[in-house]
């Protein structure tokens, strides 16, 4: 889910025509930065969503970061001013074992968009605990304790 940052202010400052131009500008930038199978949609107002079939969360988050940078790096000329547009991104992946409805999934993804907004906009948010490969990887200290012993139960009893 994507939301153009400060869109209302842009409309107020430069007028609705400029607002429309900003929408077209961002969407065409994004469209040229995704794969042919990806589906960009205008979800409403200044909100967009892009469906990335077959992508893992890491890939999707990387794609979102690419789109974020693409927009930030391509300022738009509006009424003689050079305006830098930014957007906030919420990313989530629908996993194999999910039982959520479409609405439920959109809602969940929206939470990450809200988080991106509240953390200062112009950023990509997603559940990082889901992609940190290290979360199930056996780390060096664990390996060492397994092979050489020496670990002690510090939190005995639960």
């Amino acid at each position: 889910m994507i939301d153009l940052d400060h869109f209302k202010r842009l409309n107020d400052d430069y007028g609705h025509e400029a607002g429309n131009k900003a929408l077209q500008w961002s969407s065409s930038l994004w469209r040229s930065n995704i794969r042919r199978i990806d589906m960009p949609c205008r979800y409403g107002g200044e909100e967009f969503s892009i469906i990335l079939p077959g992508s893992r969360l890491t890939q999707a988050a990387r794609a979102a970061e690419r789109l974020r940078v693409a927009l930030e790096d391509a300022p738009l000329r509006l009424n003689g001013d050079v305006v830098t547009l930014t957007a906030s991104f919420g990313v989530d992946a629908y996993g194999e074992r999910e039982t959520l409805t479409v609405e439920g999934f959109i809602q969940r993804t929206d939470q990450y968009l809200l988080e991106a907004k509240s953390r200062g906009r112009n950023r990509v948010c997603f559940d990082e605990s889901k992609v940190r490969g290290v979360s199930t990887e056996v780390m060096a200290d664990e390996r060492e304790a397994l092979i050489w012993g020496g670990g002690t139960v510090e939190n005995g009893g639960r």
Partner: peptide
């Protein structure tokens, strides 16, 4: 038993 204690300890400590 030694092998077991090792894995038990590490699993408790790192994974609870």
């Amino acid at each position: 038993h030694q092998t077991f204690v090792r894995i038990q300890t590490v699993a408790k400590k790192f994974l609870d």
